[in-house]
Amino acid sequence: MRRFILWSGALCLLALAPLFLRSYTLYILNMAGVYLVATLGLNLLTGYTGQLSIGHAGFLAIGAYAGALLPAKLAVPFWLSIPLAGIISGLAGFILLIPALRLTAIYLAIATLGFGAAVAEILPRWTAVTGGYQGMKVPKAAFLGLTLDSDVKLYYLALIIVILMILLARNIVGSKLGRAFVAIRDQERAAQALGISLTKYKASAFFISAFYTGIAGALYSFVVGYISPGEFDLAKSLLIFMMMALGGMGSIPGSVVGAVFLTFLPHWLSGFRGLQQFIYGAALVLVVIFAPYGIWGFVRRWTMPDKLQRLPRPLRAVVEFVRG
């Protein structure tokens, strides 16, 4: 019952947020939502299944272009274009399955790196469809006669997608699917002996991960309103990777924390050129030193039940709720 109240409270707060926040803050929140979904996707693959990827910007790009092109060129309704973008990206995920079944850790990482580089190279050259280097304007998302033309409206779209994707991830992680992923990550042989097919579950992990990131890409295209190939480079792949690792690998709240934190960090750091980068880099190093298992790992460690004894009861309930 208490959980229910706290959940509804959190939801109300999120739903009412546009009343208190500036449009610019909402825009950044929308971007945080985009990265949150992508980070969840990467976490399901890398954090849970142990398959390293530093090429997820490729899936983000596929999702973004699919999300923009389907309504623009094929007149696909907007509500359908987002899941379709996810599915197209998910199918592209199977490309990485072939190396993933043969390769381990660092060798797979280079294959994913190559995938990212390939997508970044093909997109600008496929001028007829993508508009080349200049990029393309994304048509405004419209839904039941409602045009999502403001950050507030997009905020609700992002919020709905984020909540759905978090729930989906929770279901996956808490079921035999998620257990099979972790089993493959920790003991491939034992997993096989227990009847878990590496091909099937690695394929599922790649599909799901690419699906998530594709959805994130589609959302990205609507939030930004304009996409160009240069945005989906190695730096973006590494950004998603950092969000996952800094938030906490193999943890859903970790993905939330990591994505929101690293989306907001550059915006908090305005100043003369270079300072932003410096503090960003320093923040990464500090988090690694002081929270080796990610920010979420750190939070969990310092909110262990024995450390909460001295907190007043209502506050303790909130902390326990957040902790999960």
Partner: peptide, 9 residues
């Protein structure tokens, strides 16, 4: 990630 951070610095 830490090596990435050092690179940024």
């Amino acid at each position: 990630i830490a090596t990435l951070g050092i690179g940024m610095i």
